[in-house]
Design a protein around this nucleic acid. Structure first.
Lengths: 230, 230
DNA sequence: ACCTGAACACCGTTCAAGT
DNA sequence: ACCTGAACACCGTTCAAGT
């Protein structure tokens, strides 16, 4: 109902001419979020950036949630599409790596990711590619959707957990609660953890998204060469 | 430095006697969060529930983030530990299912999960169990940690994405943005998606955590019976 | 040692009015 | 049709003072 028609070939609409547009707002929001972090993206700060009052924004965007969705869409739209290998298995890995890297490059995206699926127009290309490859690898359409979702959960979880941890570390260089817990480990109760306690921080800091992704794909798809002597 | 000694065998400490304690605060916070949702957990509302002023809380808890961590710890501590099967593979599945179900039962936990690893004292039991089982299944300690992390990312992602979606649906029964995108699918551009568009909502609503978990475990662990004719 | 009141520096959003 | 000012109903946290 709140349609915003692009200012294309309308012969002089009546009323006051607009001074800002959805596009201008989204670009300004992106600037704030990239330069200053999501925490600074408030309607007031955004209005300032655009050069209007907070209330002018509500004329172009329903509310702040809608704005965040527009922002997510913007990221999806400006992401580079990779050239896809022929092998379905490799195709899935390639698509998700691109998706992951593109999203992980915007640490602010974490707050937005939790607010909805990544389901903008622009993201459909990636989803289509994964479903198609999964079917190509031998799954049924329904299984393919399930596989896609599993991979998506893993990807979202990885980005959220790791980039939140990184943000925390940057904001507060003091040892985390986890470090404290690990330094008081009882070797009788938790022998395995005690044995690797010293390596834990280093192991956790390492980016193992790709390894996990490949394990996941292997677990989800049927074996590459099915002997099946039936 | 801000040590809070339990009121055990101290012979009449000087100064004003405390009227609230960390325990009382955490219990009150839990009550609010369970009954009214995380959004309502504010320092002011919490003070009201406890029967003090907001500022009294800051004497027992560093800040709101610390409070959320205490809350997470509380959940981990009150979670029931499952009896573990002998088979390492089944053991991992069992532990993560318990972890998942326990966390997913508290929809409010989403906001807290993103704020740190699940690394309270009480959670160590689960982590130790997974690492031990993974080593038992043939992984090196380092590989076991990697496997644990991959499974944790998947679990967190699943909980966050699905419970956020559920919360949205409850708050606003109108069709989501995703529904809208799916109803305008171009079958030429996205043939696979167009073919399953009608089933998408149903497939996504379904709980497939277990299936994904098992696929993940299969992909992460070495095959159960390694022929290895060397 | 523990608690309080008042204040600071913010939020998102509504509503009635202006151009 | 688009924008504004003033206001509502909130936040987390600091600080100086009280018991």
């Amino acid at each position: 109902m709140n349609e915003h028609v692009p200012s294309s070939s309308r012969p002089r609409p009546p009323g006051r001419p607009p001074r800002v547009s959805r596009d201008v707002i989204v670009r300004a929001a992106r600037r704030i979020v990239d330069d200053e972090g999501v925490a600074r993206l408030t309607m007031r700060r955004l209005a300032e950036e655009v050069g209007t009052t907070p209330m002018a924004l509500y004329h172009h965007v329903r509310d702040k949630d809608a704005l965040l969705l527009l922002l997510l869409e913007d990221v999806a739209a400006t992401m580079q599409r990779p050239t896809l290998p022929a092998d379905p298995r490799q195709r899935i890995v390639t698509i998700f790596r691109t998706l992951h890297d593109g999203l992980a490059a915007c640490p602010w995206i974490v707050d937005v990711l939790t607010s909805d699926d990544l389901m903008s127009e622009a993201a459909l290309w990636y989803v289509e590619g994964v479903i198609d490859a999964a079917i190509g690898a031998g799954l049924s359409p329904r299984q393919a959707v399930r596989a896609y979702r599993t991979l998506w959960y893993y990807t979202v979880g990885e980005i959220i957990v790791r980039s939140t941890a990184a943000r925390r570390r940057a904001a507060n260089p003091a040892p985390t609660y986890r470090d404290e817990v690990f330094s008081h480990l009882n070797a009788d109760e938790h022998p395995r953890l005690a044995a690797i306690a010293d390596d834990w921080a280093e192991l956790t800091a390492r980016d193992t998204y790709r390894d996990g992704l490949e394990a996941l794909v292997n677990g989800l798809l049927p074996p590459p060469i099915a002997p099946d002597p039936a």
